[in-house]
């Protein structure tokens, strides 16, 4: 079983800033971590490998700094990692991300299963998975809360819709996006942290992939962020209710029913 897990590095939530000129989130010098949902995808891949054998390959796109989250994934137990990194990929939106990612998966070759987290916690799009599935022309299972192999080539999944569940069975290859209910990601262990430095992280640029240059990076991205702002948040102004309980409840209900 050859499994590719696509991961994204996201800034730790309390350290996000906005560049007032470019309107982009500043990710330099911000501690990066693996997108939490992607950890569920890595965990699922490792469990499948424990059960069926095979190889778990991490794939990400971003600047060199993304190596640290790939290293974290290797320390969880993945076998090797590939980082798509080049100025040419910079400024990509989901469409211009899904395309080189899918080309990289084609280059890896013989991939049975592509796993992703349901969405990233920063941009919150959840779009790359279905885009990759479309480009690879394979079926997708999104928002999976349960997965199990029926046989070596058939995966049963249950996805959680809004107020309903849905069973689905796919024949591999397929793209699966996982929910956090699926599993609890394992910790990196001290020994795995040390061995993660012995596992390869290959860096691929646009020259290593078969790509249409107009479909990558900022130029290949249809969307642009025109404005970023922090919505105003009101601190809590405490309203003191009357001493008499019946009056106090009346006051309260009058206000919160508005």
């Amino acid at each position: 079983m050859k499994i590719v897990v696509c991961i994204k590095q996201v800034p730790k939530s309390d350290s996000v800033k906005i560049d007032p000129k470019t309107n982009n989130m500043v990710r330099d010098n911000v501690e990066g971590v693996i997108n939490p949902f992607d950890k569920n995808a890595i965990e699922e891949a490792l469990r499948i490998k424990d059960q069926l054998g095979g190889e778990v390959i991490l794939l990400s796109m971003g600047p060199d700094g993304y190596m640290s989250s790939l290293r974290d994934g290797l320390a969880m137990g993945a076998d090797r990692a590939i980082l798509l990194s080049s100025r040419a990929f910079g400024g990509a939106d989901t469409l211009a991300t899904g395309y080189p990612i899918s080309q990289a998966i084609k280059k890896i070759g013989g991939v049975d299963l592509v796993l992703l987290g349901r969405q990233s916690v920063d941009a919150d799009t959840g779009q790359v998975g279905p885009i990759v599935a479309e480009y690879l022309n394979v079926p997708q299972v999104t928002f999976a809360e349960e997965l199990r192999f029926v046989d070596e080539h058939t995966l049963y999944g249950q996805r959680l819709l809004d107020g309903a569940t849905q069973s689905v069975q796919v024949t591999l290859p397929a793209v699966v996006m996982v929910r956090s209910e699926l599993n609890t990601p394992r910790y990196e262990t001290p020994v795995n942290i040390q061995t993660s430095f012995e596992k390869p992280i290959d860096v691929w640029t646009e020259h290593d992939l078969d790509l249409d240059a107009t479909r990558i990076g900022q130029a290949g991205s249809p969307t642009t962020v025109q404005k970023v702002y922090a919505p105003k948040r009101e601190g809590r102004q405490t309203v003191q209710l009357s001493d008499d309980s019946a009056t106090a409840v009346k006051e309260l209900l009058a206000r919160i029913r508005n």
Binding site: A75, Y187, T189
Partner: peptide, 16 residues
């Protein structure tokens, strides 16, 4: 590398 490994260890222990 030693420094990076140590900081990974410390984050792991913190999370645990």
């Amino acid at each position: 590398q030693e420094k990076m490994a140590a900081s990974m260890l410390h984050r792991m222990v913190r999370e645990f």
